[in-house]
Amino acid sequence: MKANLVMTKELVVCHPEQTVFEVLKVLREKSFRVLPVVDENQKILGAVNMLSMLSKLVPEYIVKGYLKSIPYAPDMGVLRKHYKEIIDHKVIDIMDDNPTIVGENESLLSVTSALIAFDRFEYAFVADKENVLLGIIASSDIVRCLSKFDPEVLFDA
């Protein structure tokens, strides 16, 4: 089985110039976990998800220093302050610019290994050789596919 048979093809995407506020609204209203960020030719530029947005709210000296965890610190209103600051920014400022991307002809085994190897989010974008977005595969899509185990479908492609 190949990636293009498992992926979701009907996609909602966003563009780099949209504001964080607009994109978060779409994520919340549609209960999506991720939105691909694409240019006018549908080429993948990055991804926006809740975690990539939250990672911009925590001061860098915490996430990149010796302070891996700070159980002793109060909230200090830092998150809210930074949230207010970034809400009007463009998506390109907060997006994850290195999302997991797989080829349309990659096997399900290869896609699953890629998801585990990159270990950040539970999805991979499917793209052609020009990096044009074709679909998205979530880990739940793979499990769904396996649960409907049909040897002919899984192995002949």
């Binding site: 001061p59 000296y61 915490i62 220093g65 010796y66 302070l67 700070i70 610190a73 109060p74 200090m76 830092v78």
Partner: peptide
Amino acid sequence: VLLIAPVTLLITDA
């Protein structure tokens, strides 16, 4: 300083 500077930044943020 790797140990103290991040705590300092937390405190000055507070």
